[in-house]
Design a protein around this nucleic acid. Sequence first.
DNA 1: ACCTGAACACCGTTCAAGT
DNA 2: ACCTGAACACCGTTCAAGT
Lengths: 187, 187
Amino acid sequence: MAGLSLRKVAAALDTGAASLYVYVANLDELHALVLDRVLGEVVTPPQQDGDWRSRLKAALRSYSEALYARPGLAQVALSTIPSGPNMVELTECLLDLLQQGGMELDRAAWAVDLLLLHTSAFAAERDNRRGDDKVALRRAQEALGSVSPEKHPHIHALGAELFSGEQSRYDWALDVLINGVLNTPRP
Amino acid sequence: MAGLSLRKVAAALDTGAASLYVYVANLDELHALVLDRVLGEVVTPPQQDGDWRSRLKAALRSYSEALYARPGLAQVALSTIPSGPNMVELTECLLDLLQQGGMELDRAAWAVDLLLLHTSAFAAERDNRRGDDKVALRRAQEALGSVSPEKHPHIHALGAELFSGEQSRYDWALDVLINGVLNTPRP
DNA sequence: ACCTGAACACCGTTCAAGT
DNA sequence: ACCTGAACACCGTTCAAGT
Protein backbone atom coordinates (compact mmCIF):
# COMPACT_ATOMS: atom_id res chain seq x y z
CA MET A 1 0.00 0.00 0.00
CA ALA A 2 1.04 3.57 -0.54
CA GLY A 3 3.85 4.47 1.79
CA LEU A 4 4.14 0.97 3.19
CA SER A 5 7.65 -0.11 2.54
CA LEU A 6 9.83 -2.77 4.07
CA ARG A 7 12.16 -0.04 5.21
CA LYS A 8 9.45 1.88 7.05
CA VAL A 9 8.13 -1.21 8.75
CA ALA A 10 11.66 -2.07 9.75
CA ALA A 11 12.27 1.45 11.06
CA ALA A 12 9.07 1.26 13.12
CA LEU A 13 10.44 -1.96 14.60
CA ASP A 14 13.80 -0.32 15.35
CA THR A 15 15.79 -2.58 13.12
CA GLY A 16 17.19 -2.77 9.61
CA ALA A 17 15.19 -3.71 6.54
CA ALA A 18 17.18 -6.90 6.12
CA SER A 19 15.81 -8.32 9.35
CA LEU A 20 12.29 -8.52 7.97
CA TYR A 21 13.39 -11.23 5.58
CA VAL A 22 13.31 -13.63 8.51
CA TYR A 23 9.52 -13.34 8.60
CA VAL A 24 8.70 -12.57 5.00
CA ALA A 25 10.12 -13.72 1.68
CA ASN A 26 9.56 -10.41 -0.07
CA LEU A 27 7.41 -7.31 -0.30
CA ASP A 28 4.51 -9.17 -1.90
CA GLU A 29 4.27 -11.44 1.10
CA LEU A 30 4.19 -8.47 3.46
CA HIS A 31 1.38 -7.01 1.35
CA ALA A 32 -0.58 -10.24 1.52
CA LEU A 33 -0.25 -10.32 5.31
CA VAL A 34 -1.43 -6.73 5.70
CA LEU A 35 -4.32 -7.32 3.29
CA ASP A 36 -5.60 -10.33 5.14
CA ARG A 37 -5.28 -8.54 8.45
CA VAL A 38 -7.45 -5.70 7.16
CA LEU A 39 -9.93 -8.18 5.70
CA GLY A 40 -10.66 -9.14 9.29
CA GLU A 41 -12.65 -5.92 9.56
CA VAL A 42 -15.09 -6.92 6.86
CA VAL A 43 -18.50 -7.48 8.37
CA THR A 44 -20.97 -9.92 6.90
CA PRO A 45 -24.57 -9.29 7.96
CA PRO A 46 -26.34 -11.97 10.03
CA GLN A 47 -28.95 -14.24 8.50
CA GLN A 48 -32.01 -12.37 9.68
CA ASP A 49 -31.01 -8.95 8.25
CA GLY A 50 -32.87 -8.56 4.98
CA ASP A 51 -32.74 -10.83 1.96
CA TRP A 52 -29.63 -12.47 0.56
CA ARG A 53 -29.20 -9.79 -2.08
CA SER A 54 -28.99 -6.85 0.29
CA ARG A 55 -26.75 -8.86 2.59
CA LEU A 56 -24.46 -9.63 -0.33
CA LYS A 57 -24.30 -5.97 -1.20
CA ALA A 58 -23.60 -5.01 2.40
CA ALA A 59 -20.75 -7.50 2.61
CA LEU A 60 -19.18 -6.20 -0.58
CA ARG A 61 -19.60 -2.60 0.52
CA SER A 62 -17.85 -3.50 3.75
CA TYR A 63 -15.01 -5.08 1.77
CA SER A 64 -14.81 -2.02 -0.43
CA GLU A 65 -14.62 0.35 2.52
CA ALA A 66 -12.00 -1.69 4.33
CA LEU A 67 -9.81 -1.37 1.24
CA TYR A 68 -10.57 2.27 0.61
CA ALA A 69 -9.80 3.24 4.20
CA ARG A 70 -6.11 2.55 3.56
CA PRO A 71 -4.67 4.41 0.57
CA GLY A 72 -2.99 1.99 -1.77
CA LEU A 73 -4.46 -1.15 -0.29
CA ALA A 74 -6.95 -1.65 -3.11
CA GLN A 75 -4.02 -1.83 -5.53
CA VAL A 76 -2.52 -4.49 -3.29
CA ALA A 77 -5.77 -6.47 -3.43
CA LEU A 78 -5.61 -6.36 -7.22
CA SER A 79 -2.03 -7.58 -7.42
CA THR A 80 -2.07 -10.22 -4.71
CA ILE A 81 -3.43 -13.73 -4.77
CA PRO A 82 -4.70 -13.79 -1.21
CA SER A 83 -4.81 -16.98 0.77
CA GLY A 84 -5.10 -15.77 4.34
CA PRO A 85 -7.77 -17.01 6.76
CA ASN A 86 -9.91 -13.88 6.50
CA MET A 87 -10.05 -14.14 2.72
CA VAL A 88 -11.12 -17.78 3.06
CA GLU A 89 -13.80 -16.70 5.52
CA LEU A 90 -15.09 -13.98 3.23
CA THR A 91 -15.11 -16.26 0.20
CA GLU A 92 -17.09 -18.90 2.05
CA CYS A 93 -19.60 -16.29 3.20
CA LEU A 94 -20.10 -14.90 -0.30
CA LEU A 95 -20.51 -18.39 -1.74
CA ASP A 96 -23.16 -19.05 0.85
CA LEU A 97 -25.06 -15.87 0.06
CA LEU A 98 -25.12 -16.64 -3.65
CA GLN A 99 -26.31 -20.15 -2.95
CA GLN A 100 -29.12 -18.70 -0.86
CA GLY A 101 -30.02 -16.80 -4.01
CA GLY A 102 -30.47 -20.14 -5.73
CA MET A 103 -27.22 -20.23 -7.64
CA GLU A 104 -25.35 -23.44 -8.42
CA LEU A 105 -22.08 -23.71 -6.52
CA ASP A 106 -19.79 -23.80 -9.54
CA ARG A 107 -21.29 -20.65 -10.97
CA ALA A 108 -21.10 -19.01 -7.55
CA ALA A 109 -17.35 -19.71 -7.51
CA TRP A 110 -16.83 -17.67 -10.66
CA ALA A 111 -19.28 -15.05 -9.45
CA VAL A 112 -17.41 -14.49 -6.19
CA ASP A 113 -14.19 -13.96 -8.10
CA LEU A 114 -15.88 -11.49 -10.40
CA LEU A 115 -17.55 -9.59 -7.56
CA LEU A 116 -14.33 -9.29 -5.57
CA LEU A 117 -12.30 -8.31 -8.62
CA HIS A 118 -14.78 -5.62 -9.50
CA THR A 119 -15.04 -4.31 -5.97
CA SER A 120 -11.27 -4.12 -5.62
CA ALA A 121 -10.95 -2.37 -8.97
CA PHE A 122 -13.64 0.10 -8.04
CA ALA A 123 -11.97 0.86 -4.72
CA ALA A 124 -8.63 1.30 -6.49
CA GLU A 125 -10.16 3.73 -8.96
CA ARG A 126 -11.73 5.77 -6.18
CA ASP A 127 -8.42 5.68 -4.36
CA ASN A 128 -6.55 7.02 -7.36
CA ARG A 129 -9.05 9.77 -7.94
CA ARG A 130 -8.48 11.30 -4.55
CA GLY A 131 -5.31 13.16 -3.78
CA ASP A 132 -3.35 15.12 -6.34
CA ASP A 133 -5.08 13.68 -9.38
CA LYS A 134 -7.23 16.75 -9.88
CA VAL A 135 -4.93 17.67 -12.75
CA ALA A 136 -5.53 14.46 -14.67
CA LEU A 137 -9.25 14.59 -13.97
CA ARG A 138 -9.59 18.14 -15.20
CA ARG A 139 -7.63 17.32 -18.33
CA ALA A 140 -9.91 14.36 -19.00
CA GLN A 141 -12.98 16.52 -18.49
CA GLU A 142 -11.62 19.12 -20.88
CA ALA A 143 -10.64 16.53 -23.49
CA LEU A 144 -14.06 14.89 -23.44
CA GLY A 145 -15.94 18.15 -23.12
CA SER A 146 -14.34 19.83 -26.12
CA VAL A 147 -14.86 17.04 -28.60
CA SER A 148 -16.20 17.69 -32.10
CA PRO A 149 -19.95 16.98 -32.44
CA GLU A 150 -19.43 15.45 -35.89
CA LYS A 151 -16.67 12.96 -35.10
CA HIS A 152 -17.81 12.04 -31.58
CA PRO A 153 -21.55 12.73 -31.35
CA HIS A 154 -22.23 10.44 -28.40
CA ILE A 155 -19.49 11.85 -26.19
CA HIS A 156 -20.50 15.36 -27.20
CA ALA A 157 -24.11 14.67 -26.30
CA LEU A 158 -23.13 13.28 -22.91
CA GLY A 159 -20.93 16.17 -21.83
CA ALA A 160 -20.47 16.34 -18.07
CA GLU A 161 -22.76 13.34 -17.71
CA LEU A 162 -19.70 11.15 -18.35
CA PHE A 163 -18.35 11.98 -14.92
CA SER A 164 -21.59 11.90 -12.97
CA GLY A 165 -22.57 9.74 -10.06
CA GLU A 166 -20.40 8.67 -7.20
CA GLN A 167 -22.21 6.44 -4.82
CA SER A 168 -25.16 5.79 -7.13
CA ARG A 169 -22.76 4.58 -9.78
CA TYR A 170 -21.26 2.03 -7.44
CA ASP A 171 -24.68 0.81 -6.35
CA TRP A 172 -25.75 0.51 -9.97
CA ALA A 173 -22.59 -1.41 -10.88
CA LEU A 174 -23.20 -3.88 -8.06
CA ASP A 175 -26.74 -4.47 -9.30
CA VAL A 176 -25.41 -4.93 -12.82
CA LEU A 177 -23.05 -7.64 -11.61
CA ILE A 178 -25.63 -9.41 -9.48
CA ASN A 179 -28.25 -9.33 -12.22
CA GLY A 180 -25.61 -10.44 -14.66
CA VAL A 181 -24.43 -13.48 -12.73
CA LEU A 182 -28.04 -14.48 -12.04
CA ASN A 183 -28.87 -14.36 -15.75
CA THR A 184 -25.71 -15.93 -17.15
CA PRO A 185 -25.17 -19.68 -16.69
CA ARG A 186 -21.71 -21.10 -16.95
CA PRO A 187 -20.78 -22.35 -20.41
CA MET B 1 4.38 -0.28 -16.88
CA ALA B 2 6.79 -2.76 -15.42
CA GLY B 3 10.30 -1.68 -16.12
CA LEU B 4 9.26 1.57 -17.74
CA SER B 5 10.97 4.27 -15.74
CA LEU B 6 11.79 7.85 -16.52
CA ARG B 7 15.43 6.99 -16.16
CA LYS B 8 15.30 4.16 -18.69
CA VAL B 9 13.44 6.26 -21.21
CA ALA B 10 15.97 9.02 -20.67
CA ALA B 11 18.86 6.58 -21.08
CA ALA B 12 17.36 5.32 -24.34
CA LEU B 13 17.27 8.91 -25.50
CA ASP B 14 20.90 9.45 -24.48
CA THR B 15 20.17 12.09 -21.92
CA GLY B 16 19.55 12.52 -18.23
CA ALA B 17 16.26 11.82 -16.50
CA ALA B 18 15.81 15.49 -15.67
CA SER B 19 15.49 16.38 -19.33
CA LEU B 20 12.22 14.50 -19.68
CA TYR B 21 10.54 17.01 -17.43
CA VAL B 22 10.49 19.37 -20.38
CA TYR B 23 7.93 17.14 -22.09
CA VAL B 24 6.18 15.55 -19.14
CA ALA B 25 5.14 16.82 -15.72
CA ASN B 26 5.72 13.52 -13.94
CA LEU B 27 5.72 9.75 -14.29
CA ASP B 28 1.92 9.54 -14.41
CA GLU B 29 1.86 11.74 -17.46
CA LEU B 30 4.42 9.53 -19.20
CA HIS B 31 2.24 6.54 -18.39
CA ALA B 32 -0.82 8.24 -19.83
CA LEU B 33 1.04 8.99 -23.05
CA VAL B 34 2.26 5.41 -23.43
CA LEU B 35 -1.19 4.04 -22.65
CA ASP B 36 -2.92 6.14 -25.27
CA ARG B 37 -0.28 5.27 -27.82
CA VAL B 38 -0.91 1.55 -27.25
CA LEU B 39 -4.67 2.12 -27.39
CA GLY B 40 -4.12 3.03 -31.02
CA GLU B 41 -3.74 -0.69 -31.70
CA VAL B 42 -7.22 -1.54 -30.51
CA VAL B 43 -9.34 -2.67 -33.43
CA THR B 44 -13.06 -2.12 -33.53
CA PRO B 45 -14.89 -4.41 -35.94
CA PRO B 46 -16.68 -2.83 -38.91
CA GLN B 47 -20.48 -2.51 -38.99
CA GLN B 48 -21.18 -5.56 -41.14
CA ASP B 49 -19.23 -8.06 -38.98
CA GLY B 50 -21.81 -9.85 -36.86
CA ASP B 51 -24.27 -8.29 -34.42
CA TRP B 52 -23.47 -5.46 -32.03
CA ARG B 53 -22.91 -7.83 -29.14
CA SER B 54 -20.16 -9.86 -30.75
CA ARG B 55 -18.60 -6.67 -32.10
CA LEU B 56 -18.61 -5.20 -28.59
CA LYS B 57 -16.95 -8.30 -27.25
CA ALA B 58 -14.36 -8.24 -30.02
CA ALA B 59 -13.51 -4.61 -29.29
CA LEU B 60 -13.08 -5.30 -25.58
CA ARG B 61 -11.00 -8.37 -26.27
CA SER B 62 -8.78 -6.28 -28.50
CA TYR B 63 -8.44 -3.71 -25.72
CA SER B 64 -7.63 -6.45 -23.25
CA GLU B 65 -4.96 -7.93 -25.47
CA ALA B 66 -3.33 -4.59 -26.19
CA LEU B 67 -2.93 -4.12 -22.44
CA TYR B 68 -1.83 -7.67 -21.74
CA ALA B 69 0.83 -7.58 -24.45
CA ARG B 70 2.84 -5.12 -22.32
CA PRO B 71 3.57 -6.32 -18.81
CA GLY B 72 2.46 -3.72 -16.32
CA LEU B 73 0.39 -1.67 -18.72
CA ALA B 74 -2.92 -2.95 -17.36
CA GLN B 75 -1.96 -1.57 -13.95
CA VAL B 76 -1.30 1.75 -15.63
CA ALA B 77 -4.76 1.65 -17.22
CA LEU B 78 -6.26 1.15 -13.77
CA SER B 79 -4.42 4.05 -12.17
CA THR B 80 -4.64 6.58 -14.97
CA ILE B 81 -7.52 8.80 -15.98
CA PRO B 82 -6.91 8.64 -19.71
CA SER B 83 -7.81 11.54 -21.94
CA GLY B 84 -5.80 10.85 -25.08
CA PRO B 85 -7.33 10.78 -28.55
CA ASN B 86 -7.33 7.01 -28.83
CA MET B 87 -9.24 6.66 -25.59
CA VAL B 88 -11.80 9.17 -26.86
CA GLU B 89 -12.08 7.18 -30.08
CA LEU B 90 -12.58 3.89 -28.24
CA THR B 91 -15.14 5.39 -25.87
CA GLU B 92 -17.17 6.79 -28.74
CA CYS B 93 -17.08 3.44 -30.49
CA LEU B 94 -18.25 1.53 -27.42
CA LEU B 95 -21.04 4.04 -26.79
CA ASP B 96 -22.17 3.53 -30.36
CA LEU B 97 -22.20 -0.24 -30.05
CA LEU B 98 -24.29 -0.14 -26.88
CA GLN B 99 -26.71 2.26 -28.50
CA GLN B 100 -27.05 -0.17 -31.40
CA GLY B 101 -28.09 -2.66 -28.73
CA GLY B 102 -30.95 -0.33 -27.86
CA MET B 103 -29.46 1.20 -24.73
CA GLU B 104 -30.15 4.78 -23.67
CA LEU B 105 -27.08 7.00 -23.95
CA ASP B 106 -26.80 7.89 -20.27
CA ARG B 107 -26.86 4.25 -19.25
CA ALA B 108 -24.35 3.45 -21.98
CA ALA B 109 -21.99 6.03 -20.46
CA TRP B 110 -21.91 4.19 -17.17
CA ALA B 111 -21.76 0.85 -18.95
CA VAL B 112 -18.67 1.82 -20.96
CA ASP B 113 -16.91 2.83 -17.77
CA LEU B 114 -17.80 -0.44 -16.15
CA LEU B 115 -16.77 -2.54 -19.13
CA LEU B 116 -13.41 -0.80 -19.45
CA LEU B 117 -12.75 -0.96 -15.71
CA HIS B 118 -13.51 -4.65 -15.65
CA THR B 119 -11.45 -5.42 -18.74
CA SER B 120 -8.47 -3.51 -17.36
CA ALA B 121 -8.78 -5.25 -14.00
CA PHE B 122 -9.01 -8.63 -15.66
CA ALA B 123 -5.93 -7.93 -17.79
CA ALA B 124 -4.05 -6.77 -14.70
CA GLU B 125 -4.96 -9.94 -12.85
CA ARG B 126 -3.80 -12.12 -15.73
CA ASP B 127 -0.63 -10.06 -15.91
CA ASN B 128 0.11 -10.56 -12.23
CA ARG B 129 -0.49 -14.27 -12.44
CA ARG B 130 2.23 -14.80 -15.00
CA GLY B 131 5.85 -14.59 -14.05
CA ASP B 132 7.20 -15.52 -10.66
CA ASP B 133 3.83 -15.61 -8.92
CA LYS B 134 3.72 -19.39 -8.98
CA VAL B 135 4.59 -19.34 -5.28
CA ALA B 136 1.60 -17.24 -4.28
CA LEU B 137 -0.72 -19.24 -6.52
CA ARG B 138 0.38 -22.55 -5.10
CA ARG B 139 0.01 -21.24 -1.59
CA ALA B 140 -3.51 -20.07 -2.38
CA GLN B 141 -4.37 -23.43 -3.88
CA GLU B 142 -3.07 -25.21 -0.82
CA ALA B 143 -4.88 -22.87 1.57
CA LEU B 144 -8.21 -23.30 -0.19
CA GLY B 145 -7.71 -26.99 -0.85
CA SER B 146 -6.98 -27.97 2.74
CA VAL B 147 -9.91 -26.23 4.34
CA SER B 148 -12.06 -27.96 6.95
CA PRO B 149 -15.31 -29.39 5.50
CA GLU B 150 -17.26 -28.30 8.59
CA LYS B 151 -16.25 -24.64 8.75
CA HIS B 152 -16.03 -24.02 5.01
CA PRO B 153 -18.25 -26.54 3.26
CA HIS B 154 -18.67 -24.60 0.01
CA ILE B 155 -14.96 -24.02 -0.53
CA HIS B 156 -14.27 -27.63 0.40
CA ALA B 157 -16.86 -28.85 -2.09
CA LEU B 158 -15.40 -26.72 -4.86
CA GLY B 159 -11.79 -27.80 -4.44
CA ALA B 160 -9.71 -27.21 -7.56
CA GLU B 161 -12.80 -25.89 -9.31
CA LEU B 162 -12.04 -22.52 -7.68
CA PHE B 163 -9.12 -22.02 -10.02
CA SER B 164 -10.63 -23.40 -13.19
CA GLY B 165 -11.25 -21.71 -16.47
CA GLU B 166 -8.99 -19.28 -18.22
CA GLN B 167 -10.45 -18.06 -21.46
CA SER B 168 -13.93 -19.39 -20.79
CA ARG B 169 -14.00 -17.46 -17.54
CA TYR B 170 -13.24 -14.21 -19.31
CA ASP B 171 -15.88 -14.87 -21.94
CA TRP B 172 -18.40 -15.66 -19.24
CA ALA B 173 -17.54 -12.49 -17.31
CA LEU B 174 -18.06 -10.40 -20.41
CA ASP B 175 -21.48 -11.95 -20.94
CA VAL B 176 -22.30 -11.33 -17.29
CA LEU B 177 -21.51 -7.64 -17.69
CA ILE B 178 -23.38 -7.24 -20.96
CA ASN B 179 -26.44 -9.08 -19.67
CA GLY B 180 -26.19 -7.05 -16.49
CA VAL B 181 -26.11 -3.64 -18.11
CA LEU B 182 -28.95 -4.63 -20.43
CA ASN B 183 -31.11 -5.68 -17.47
CA THR B 184 -30.26 -2.88 -15.06
CA PRO B 185 -31.67 0.60 -15.72
CA ARG B 186 -30.03 3.61 -14.17
CA PRO B 187 -31.52 4.67 -10.85
C1' DA C 1 23.20 -20.32 13.99
C1' DC C 2 21.26 -16.14 13.88
C1' DC C 3 21.01 -11.34 12.93
C1' DT C 4 22.05 -7.00 10.53
C1' DG C 5 24.99 -2.88 8.75
C1' DA C 6 26.44 -1.68 4.77
C1' DA C 7 26.37 -2.12 -0.01
C1' DC C 8 24.17 -2.71 -4.51
C1' DA C 9 21.24 -1.49 -8.01
C1' DC C 10 17.76 0.80 -8.77
C1' DC C 11 13.77 4.69 -8.39
C1' DG C 12 11.23 9.99 -9.19
C1' DT C 13 12.10 14.67 -8.65
C1' DT C 14 14.56 19.04 -7.89
C1' DC C 15 17.75 22.59 -8.62
C1' DA C 16 22.06 24.95 -9.00
C1' DA C 17 25.29 25.60 -12.13
C1' DG C 18 26.58 25.69 -16.58
C1' DT C 19 25.91 27.00 -21.74
C1' DA D 1 16.42 31.06 -21.76
C1' DC D 2 17.21 26.50 -22.00
C1' DC D 3 19.19 22.22 -20.63
C1' DT D 4 21.19 18.80 -17.49
C1' DG D 5 24.75 16.65 -14.07
C1' DA D 6 24.69 15.89 -9.73
C1' DA D 7 22.32 15.58 -5.57
C1' DC D 8 18.45 14.30 -2.60
C1' DA D 9 15.42 11.26 -0.65
C1' DC D 10 13.80 7.36 -1.17
C1' DC D 11 13.18 2.03 -2.71
C1' DG D 12 13.79 -3.87 -2.40
C1' DT D 13 17.14 -7.24 -1.85
C1' DT D 14 21.59 -9.44 -0.86
C1' DC D 15 25.47 -10.83 1.68
C1' DA D 16 29.68 -10.54 4.21
C1' DA D 17 30.99 -9.75 8.50
C1' DG D 18 30.00 -9.74 13.08
C1' DT D 19 27.94 -11.86 17.49
